[in-house]
Computed example of a mutant assay.
Amino acid sequence: GGVLGGADAALGVAAGVAVTVASYVLTTVVLAWADARNPQLVLPFGVGLYVAKFTLLGGVMVAVASTGWAGVVPLCLGIAVGVVVWTGAHIWWISTVHARRTRS
């Protein structure tokens, strides 16, 4: 982002990736906690967390977009890249590393 768009773009991309990482880590921790307490809590906690996260994310995005900050588009691209990379890493982990462990 910094190479293509300067400091605002670099900050936007970094913030977007950070938002994605924080979101996925929060989900992982909360759902692991719920599953450890009672597996029947996973669905309600998952749905509740999903609604809360996307409501908060939407509100933050509207607030940031209304400022006219030049890093808004890079922020969105950082979120998208973070989602693709995180999802790809999980697919790789499950299909290679985890699969080897379960076969052994």
Rank of each mutant, 00 (worst) to 15 (best):
G2W: 10
L4P: 00
G6S: 04
G6M: 04
A7S: 12
A7I: 08
D8K: 07
A9N: 02
A9L: 03
A10I: 05
A10Q: 12
L11G: 06
L11D: 06
G12Q: 02
A15T: 15
A15N: 13
G16D: 15
G16E: 15
V17W: 15
V17Q: 05
V17M: 12
V17A: 15
V17G: 03
A18P: 01
A18N: 02
V21K: 00
A22D: 06
A22W: 06
S23A: 14
Y24G: 07
Y24C: 13
V25Q: 11
L26V: 12
T27F: 08
T28R: 08
V30G: 01
V30Q: 04
A32G: 04
A32L: 14
A32H: 09
A32S: 13
A32C: 04
W33I: 07
W33H: 15
A34F: 01
D35M: 08
A36Y: 08
A36W: 10
A36P: 05
R37I: 07
R37Y: 00
R37F: 00
R37S: 01
N38A: 11
P39D: 11
P39W: 09
Q40G: 12
Q40C: 00
Q40Y: 07
L41Y: 11
L41A: 01
V42N: 05
L43I: 14
G46D: 03
V47A: 13
V47K: 03
G48W: 10
L49D: 03
Y50E: 14
Y50N: 13
Y50M: 12
V51Y: 08
A52S: 09
A52V: 08
A52E: 06
F54Y: 15
L56N: 03
G59P: 05
V60L: 09
V60D: 01
M61C: 06
M61E: 07
V62T: 09
V62I: 11
A63R: 05
S66W: 02
T67H: 04
G68L: 02
G68K: 02
G68T: 06
W69P: 01
W69S: 01
A70Q: 12
V72P: 02
V72G: 03
P74N: 04
C76Q: 11
L77R: 05
L77I: 13
I79Q: 02
I79H: 00
V81E: 07
V81N: 05
G82I: 06
V83L: 10
V83D: 08
V84C: 04
W86L: 10
W86P: 00
W86C: 09
W86D: 11
W86K: 06
W86F: 15
T87E: 12
G88D: 07
A89N: 05
A89M: 11
H90R: 07
I91A: 09
W92V: 14
W93H: 09
I94S: 10
I94G: 02
S95D: 14
S95K: 10
S95Y: 09
S95I: 02
T96D: 05
V97S: 04
V97K: 05
V97E: 04
H98C: 03
H98G: 00
A99R: 13
A99Y: 02
R100S: 03
R100C: 00
T102D: 07
R103E: 11
R103P: 00
